[in-house]
């Protein structure tokens, strides 16, 4: 499906690698930045940056793999995740009146330590497991797994519904990074569209929670009180 360009890669291998790694590594770095954001606004801004780095990374993959359909994925990342969703959430936060400090479950220091541990873990696992695969893809996968795990960590350490969604979206960015790094993988565009629909539903869901049902808070812990059963 995708014509490969062995001569180009051989010629500029070092440069191609370096840029791809820079962008994928940048994504991990921005994921780590998310861990210590205390305020929702700041978290959203960092997420917009996350999506922007993803856009560049995907576009770069589209360029070096000569796979024009990946530009669509990059465009979705730019328009939807870097601009529309953060803006929508921004407005929502104002309307819901929750632009206050986020309480994190553990301390920032502990969370950061855990985050670094996860990055180390995924690097060790991935590099060990994929020793046969081609080097560009394997390091891409290691970064992608780090982003996925860090996204999970954000979801676990935040109690606020909006920041959980941000964590989920960063997790999903990691998946897109992995999918675009897997050369010639079919359905990448379809998958990124499917995920965008999923996220749109989640965001609308938060909004409906509040607007329709007039919850006092979008704090998931507060929702726990409404459970019919104690267990």
């Amino acid at each position: 499906m995708t014509p490969t360009m062995p001569q180009t890669i051989a010629m500029t291998g070092g440069f191609v690698f370096d840029v791809a790694h820079l962008l994928a590594g940048g994504l991990v770095l921005v994921s780590l930045m998310m861990l210590y954001q205390r305020r929702l606004y700041a978290l959203l801004n960092v997420f917009a940056l996350h999506a922007l780095v993803l856009t560049f990374s995907v576009a770069w993959q589209a360029y070096i793999q000569d796979a024009p359909h990946l530009y669509i994925t990059a465009a979705i990342a730019l328009v939807f995740k870097a601009i529309v969703i953060p803006l929508a959430l921004h407005r929502m936060i104002v309307q819901l009146g929750i632009h206050r400090e986020i309480e994190t479950a553990g301390g920032v220091g502990l969370t950061m330590l855990l985050g670094m541990g996860l990055v180390a873990l995924s690097t060790v696992i991935m590099l060990k497991v994929t020793s046969e695969a081609d080097p560009l893809a394997r390091e891409d996968l290691a970064f992608a797994l780090s982003v996925v795990l860090l996204g999970l960590l954000v979801m676990v350490t935040r109690r606020n519904a909006v920041s959980q969604v941000v964590g989920f979206m960063s997790l999903e960015n990691g998946l897109v990074l992995a999918a675009t790094g897997a050369k010639g993988m079919p359905f990448v565009v379809e998958i990124s569209v499917a995920f965008s629909i999923l996220i749109a539903f989640i965001v609308i869901g938060i909004f409906l929670f509040r607007i329709r049902e007039r919850f006092d808070t979008v704090d998931v812990q507060a929702l726990d009180r409404f459970r019919g059963e104690m267990s």
Partner: peptide, 15 residues
Amino acid sequence: VGIGLALFGTILVYM
């Protein structure tokens, strides 16, 4: 989250 992890697994199978 489950669906996300399953996708990662699917990508790895492709790899």
